[in-house]
Amino acid sequence: MPEIDFISSVHKKTKRNYLERVTEYPKAKAANVAKKFDFDYWDGDRKVGYGGFYYDGRWKSVACALRDHYHLKSGDKVLDVGCGKGFLLYDLMMAVPGIEIYGIDISRYAITHAKEEVQPFLQEGRAECLPFEDNTFDLVISITTLHNLYCFNLEKALKEIERVGKKNKYIVVESYRNEEEKVNLLYWQLTCECFCTPDEWRWWFEKTGYSGDYSFIYFE
């Protein structure tokens, strides 16, 4: 269960004003809107979400890194838990011709507004109850999703990812290493329910029997 980073380069491209995040608009109100995971969260005002979640190719490098590290090939099955609009799955499909992609997300809006090429392979659902048989996927990924779950559902979700994956899994969660990063995370986040240090996340992985790879993103 090694720590390996494919994500930081993408995460660090976004410029963030943490103080403005909590002064320009009531944070509690923003969080209440964001947690509906509807239009406002994805394509509404930046104060309550992404401010427009559109494909721009930023996940291509991540898709290629996943392909190379996990030796993905035609016919392999990949599941993205918390796939959003399916941008990473699209880039994986482009990077590995013939790959079988599957995505699941809690947001009906994201699924119905997903990239056209991958929309048929996505479905609405929850991470803690994956509608797939044991050992179905050659790779299961979950990028910046699981920290949005309450502890009791986080435990179920990690066990579900372990259950449906044959061997390779890779998850990314938000974390903090010091008080400054903790404050920045609290200021910036809109949907988080689990606020864990790296050691606490590793405790969760061990507790649930998660055997895959992982990485953390920090708000520096």
Rank of each mutant, 00 (worst) to 15 (best):
E20R: 12
Y90M: 11
E220P: 09
W201R: 07
D138K: 00
G86N: 02
Y170W: 14
L146H: 04
H113M: 06
A127T: 00
A127S: 11
T23F: 15
I141R: 06
L66I: 05
C83M: 05
V183A: 15
F39W: 13
V48A: 06
G51T: 11
L146T: 04
K12N: 15
T208Q: 09
L122P: 00
K156T: 08
K85A: 07
A30P: 04
F87H: 12
G103L: 05
K159S: 12
L92I: 06
P2M: 14
F132Y: 14
R46A: 15
Y50A: 10
F53K: 09
E181V: 08
Y176D: 00
I171K: 02
E3H: 11
K115G: 04
K77Q: 11
K15D: 05
Y176I: 00
L79K: 08
Y102T: 02
I143E: 03
V118F: 03
K167V: 12
G84N: 03
G86T: 01
E117P: 02
K73R: 13
K85G: 01
C196I: 05
E100T: 02
S8P: 08
L190N: 06
R46F: 15
K77D: 12
L92M: 06
E24P: 07
G165A: 15
Y55K: 10
Y41K: 03
I99S: 01
K156L: 13
M1G: 12
L139D: 04
D105T: 05
N153I: 01
D68C: 08
K29F: 09
N148Y: 11
M94T: 05
E124N: 08
G165M: 03
A30C: 09
F87P: 00
T14G: 09
V33A: 10
E100R: 05
Y41C: 04
T197G: 08
D45Q: 10
D5T: 10
E193G: 01
R202Q: 14
E179T: 13
K47F: 09
N178Q: 08
K60R: 13
R177K: 15
S107M: 03
L190R: 06
F205Y: 11
K207E: 14
T23A: 15
S211G: 12
I143R: 00
I141W: 04
G209V: 01
C196F: 13
A34C: 11
K73H: 11
K73D: 05
N178W: 02
E220Q: 11
P2G: 15
V22N: 00
K35M: 13
Y102W: 06
D138E: 14
P131S: 05
G165W: 00
E128I: 03
N135M: 09
L139M: 07
A65I: 03
S9F: 08
W42P: 00
G209N: 07
A127N: 01
E220I: 07
F152E: 15
I171R: 01
G51A: 11
V48W: 07
I141K: 07
Y170S: 06
S215A: 14
Y170D: 09
E180M: 12
I217E: 02
V22L: 07
V62L: 14
A110N: 01
S211E: 14
E155D: 15
R21V: 02
Y70C: 09
F205A: 06
I143Q: 01
I141P: 00
T136G: 01
R126I: 07
R58G: 03
A31T: 07
K156W: 02
T23N: 13
G49M: 00
E179G: 08
D134S: 12
V164K: 02
K166R: 15
